[in-house]
Computed example of a mutant assay.
Amino acid sequence: MTGTGNGAGCPRARRLFIGGEWTEPDHGHYEVVNPATEEVVGLAPEASGAQVHAAAAAAREAFAGWSRTKPE
């Protein structure tokens, strides 16, 4: 893999953040391709359906408190 911004130096870059925790994706990763050059520029995590539902549930649960947070 070539290019920059591939997350190679950041172990969390290829994981999912669900409910306040970094999680390994159930379905591995897929390549992110620059459409102008067709160069692979990184990898993105591929969540399972269960992980998508867990992320949505965590977001719903956090929304009430988060929406009352002042910008500062």
Rank of each mutant, 00 (worst) to 15 (best):
R12F: 08
A55E: 05
S67T: 07
A47F: 04
S48F: 07
H53V: 09
W66V: 15
G5K: 15
A62M: 09
F17C: 10
R60C: 11
G20V: 06
A50F: 07
A13K: 00
G20N: 03
E39D: 11
W22G: 05
T4D: 10
G5W: 04
E39F: 05
E61W: 05
A58Q: 01
A64N: 05
N6Y: 01
H53A: 14
L43H: 06
G5D: 02
T2N: 15
I18E: 03
N6E: 04
H29A: 15
A13C: 13
Q51Y: 05
A55I: 09
M1C: 10
T37P: 11
A36E: 09
L43A: 12
G65N: 03
F63T: 03
A54T: 04
R68F: 04
A59F: 02
Q51A: 06
Q51D: 12
R14A: 11
E39M: 12
A64I: 04
G9A: 05
R68C: 06
G3Y: 04
E38C: 12
E39A: 15
P45H: 09
P45F: 09
P35G: 07
T37R: 07
L43N: 08
V32I: 10
V41P: 00
M1S: 15
R12S: 13
G3V: 09
F17T: 04
Q51H: 10
V52H: 10
G3T: 04
E38P: 11
G65R: 03
D26N: 10
R12D: 12
A54Q: 08
A58R: 01
V52K: 14
T4V: 09
E72N: 14
P35V: 07
N34Y: 00
T2H: 11
H53Q: 13
K70E: 14
G9T: 01
L16H: 10
F63R: 11
T69W: 07
P45D: 06
T2K: 15
T69G: 05
P71D: 03
A13N: 12
R12K: 13
G9L: 06
A57D: 14
E72G: 13
A55N: 08
V33S: 00
E31Q: 12
E21S: 09
T69P: 01
L43S: 14
I18N: 01
P35Q: 08
R68E: 09
H29R: 08
S67Y: 03
H53P: 01
L16G: 06
T23E: 13
T2V: 09
G3K: 12
G5M: 08
